[in-house]
Simulated assay, not measured.
Amino acid sequence: MEAYFTLDTHRQEEGKEIFAITLNRKHPVYKGHFPDVPVTPGVVLTDICRQLAEHALDKKLQLKEAKTIKFLAMVNPEMTPALDVEMMLSAENERYAARIVGSFEGKTYFKIQADFAGEL
């Protein structure tokens, strides 16, 4: 399947993983959600965050617990073609706590606090 996004840059800064991604506006998910006004589904944004955490940690992960997920604005790939994602990760007992903020041009689109674990 096609990727939801392209990773443009990844750097570490002050204990944070900082990513710049470009959304794949041609991904099939936008044909059904919604054809005339595409919106990135919350589950896709959450999965993008999992994939970015995998990249940062260099291991396969599985979402174990979504503690808080706040979608503050719709992510339309036509109007919001890219996202800056800041992620703080901490490890404890094979679980990785993540605090994630997704923004574009200074506007915050989502905030997620979740726990990931290595895939079984």
Rank of each mutant, 00 (worst) to 15 (best):
E2F: 05
Y4G: 04
Y4K: 03
Y4N: 03
F5K: 09
F5Q: 12
F5A: 04
T6C: 04
L7T: 09
L7H: 07
D8S: 11
T9P: 02
H10I: 00
H10M: 01
R11A: 08
Q12V: 00
Q12P: 00
E13N: 10
E14I: 00
I18F: 01
I18M: 05
I21M: 05
I21C: 07
T22Q: 13
N24V: 00
R25M: 05
K26G: 09
H27Q: 10
P28H: 10
P28M: 03
V29G: 06
Y30S: 07
G32S: 09
H33A: 08
P35E: 06
P38Q: 12
T40E: 08
T40G: 10
G42K: 11
V44N: 02
D47K: 12
I48A: 05
I48Q: 05
L52C: 12
L52H: 14
A53D: 13
E54L: 07
H55W: 05
A56S: 15
A56D: 12
A56L: 03
L57C: 09
L57E: 10
D58M: 08
D58W: 05
Q62M: 10
L63T: 15
K64C: 06
A66C: 14
T68Q: 13
I69V: 15
I69A: 15
K70H: 12
K70V: 02
F71M: 05
F71A: 11
L72C: 06
L72G: 04
V75I: 11
V75T: 05
N76W: 01
P77F: 05
P77N: 12
L83E: 00
E86P: 00
M87L: 05
M88I: 12
M88N: 13
S90E: 15
A91P: 06
A91D: 15
N93F: 06
E94K: 08
R95D: 01
A98T: 10
A98G: 14
R99V: 03
I100E: 02
I100T: 03
V101Y: 02
G106M: 05
K107L: 01
K107R: 15
K107S: 03
Y109Q: 02
K111V: 09
I112N: 08
Q113D: 15
D115W: 13
G118K: 13
